[in-house]
């Protein structure tokens, strides 16, 4: 494991924990897209089914369990515990427009036509676009709380670091996985506009306003 992969994982973990703590501490999930969080729970569930079939390392298993656990805890907080604060009226992205095409693509373009492999591919494709309901919600309300922007920053940073990890692995190990790389590039590009606003306008402000 190289340093980019490790910092990518830690950045991903930071994002997940930041969101969970924000909701827990403020007793509110205002401004958070429950739909994006359901998609992420779906991503982790379909990708980490190999927890049941193979053991890779203690690190790998631990992180997967934490990611899955946190994803479902977040969904629980949004849709059950703090349901009253959930901003459903602004969370109107049609997720079937993501899940159905992504599911179809996973069937058509994969490494091997087997159930686990198709689910893994599905999770890779779905993850690349799972943040869209959240970005859509922010563009609709026109603003995001600072802590939410930190969450998005770490989530975007994670995939950007993975891209550097894959460049590193290509040069030093001759390794590359086209499905992961293409989806990873798409995922990172979706955050670019946000990164720009985060860096140029986020400093010293309590809220990030996104021009619609």
């Amino acid at each position: 494991m190289n340093i980019f992969r490790l910092t990518g994982d830690l950045s991903h973990l930071a994002a997940i924990i930041i969101l969970l703590l924000k909701i827990w501490k403020t007793r509110s999930c205002a401004g958070i897209s429950g739909k994006s969080q359901i998609l992420f729970a779906l991503v982790f569930t379909s990708r980490y089914l190999d927890l049941l079939t193979s053991f890779i390392s203690l690190y790998n298993t631990t992180m997967k369990v934490i990611y899955i656990g946190c994803a479902y805890a977040t969904v629980y907080l949004i849709y059950a515990k703090f349901k009253a604060t959930y901003d459903g009226n602004h969370d109107t992205f049609r997720v079937e427009f993501l899940v159905v095409p992504v599911g179809g693509l996973a069937f058509l373009v994969n490494h091997d036509f087997s159930p686990l492999e198709i689910l893994w591919t599905f999770s890779i494709y779905l993850e690349s676009v799972a943040i869209l309901p959240q970005l859509f919600m922010i563009s609709k309300t026109g603003e995001a709380e600072t802590i939410t922007t930190h969450y998005l920053f770490f989530l975007g940073l994670y995939r950007a670091l993975y891209l550097i990890n894959w460049i590193w692995r290509f040069y030093f190990e001759g390794f590359f996985d086209m499905i992961a790389i293409v989806a990873g590039v798409v995922q990172t590009i979706l955050y670019c506009d946000f990164f720009y606003l985060y860096v140029t306008k986020g400093e010293g402000r309590s809220q990030l306003s996104i021009p619609t």
Binding site: D9, H12, N60, D112, N165, R169, F175
Partner: peptide, 10 residues
């Protein structure tokens, strides 16, 4: 099939 090398990633 995707290699074990990519499956090792999260």
């Amino acid at each position: 099939e995707a290699t074990d090398s990519i499956k090792d990633e999260l």
